[in-house]
Design a protein around this nucleic acid. Structure first.
Lengths: 193, 193
DNA sequence: TACCGCATGTAAACGGTTACATGATTAC
DNA sequence: GTAATCATGTAACCGTTTACATGCGGTA
């Protein structure tokens, strides 16, 4: 078992892209930390141990000459299956940006329809909230915090919708534009079903 | 004590804007849930009870004729002090969007310099990460998930920076524009020090 | 000399989630 | 009649945070 509400799955997903050490994962997570809350070291290493115990990943210790030895984790076949099982169950439609991002980062492991569905679901959610914000904006007399939040939310929602629309359009017809073939070797088309 | 890492402070901040019931708070939190992870009911009500026990809020039960009775919570003087103590300690510079948003929503309780500092800190963080993303973008050969995350992060970061810049500019000279006086009664100027 | 980055780990305390529980009213 | 909204609550389980612990190499 992987535990339904931990970051275990996400870690597993990262390892499915390429074998990494705990520190590598930590570094990657840090690059997301401006946007979403990421787990601390105190839960990262134990998660790795748990995945190992369950046979979802393997370790290879690389004795570093002249630097600390690294433990490279790689996903196993069972791990791949567990990941797919998790990814197949639809993301709940009330998910926050954090959950959206975690799945988006694992896009390579998603089927094309799965990815499209994920983006469309997010689109619907953001659009709905943008409308609610616009409606709330007509009511006057809110305090400073509420007004700033409204404004901020509206800006971010607009930007996110724009991105979602263009990305959705881009991913929907991958073969139509000739330029797409440039640096695409295993892009949109060759995805696990 | 309010507990340093809970949502207790945030709830306290919301109550400082106006007395509300737990359900009211829940409704407000839901409006933020597309952006950040918000606490569930299972932690909301206990938080309220804890604040009450510590004398930071008071309750008034409104026996609703024909609908369930509501418990309206209001902040106390001690609660106000606890809130200020919390708000005064600077937000850590590595905070996620969630922490930024929670403080932004409480802008009315911040001093002007505090608010400005908060926005500037966020600006610096987002700008730094945007630069990192641009740099990472030059490296080719990333998998689909990484490319999408890069693109997505860049879009959101750009939008957030734009908003931060214009808001920072707007809040820095509140009195210069005459139009600002329109529907401002206790806007930027009259802030708690 | 002192601090930062690399690199891995442990454990207690805390708090949040999930699930359960209740009940009335309105809308389909 | 059945689902959803309003409205409040409890408790076990579980995961995460925080703090502690260690050690080497580079650098200011």
């Amino acid at each position: 078992m992987v535990g339904t509400r931990g970051i275990r799955h996400f870690i597993l997903g990262l390892l499915s892209q390429q074998p990494m050490s705990g520190y590598d994962i930590k570094r990657f997570l840090k690059s997301l930390s401006w946007l979403i809350d990421v787990p601390s070291l105190g839960s990262l290493y134990p998660s790795l141990h748990a995945l190992l115990k369950d046979g979802l990943v393997t370790v290879k210790v690389i004795a570093g000459q002249d630097r600390p030895s690294r433990k490279i984790y790689a996903i196993t076949e069972a791990g791949g299956e567990a990941l797919q099982t998790w990814l197949k169950q639809p993301s709940d439609s009330n998910a926050s940006l954090k959950k959206f991002v975690m799945r988006l980062a694992l896009a390579g492991q998603l089927s094309q329809v799965g990815l499209l569905a994920h983006l469309e679901q997010r689109r619907a959610r953001v659009a709905a909230h943008k409308m609610a914000l616009e409606q709330a904006g007509e009511t006057k007399g809110a305090d400073l915090g509420k007004r700033l939040m409204l404004d901020y939310g509206l800006s971010l929602a607009a930007a996110e919708l724009t991105w979602l629309d263009s990305t959705l359009a881009r991913l929907s017809q991958p073969s139509l534009s000739a330029e797409a073939a440039e640096n695409e070797e295993s892009g949109f088309v060759t995805l696990t079903v």
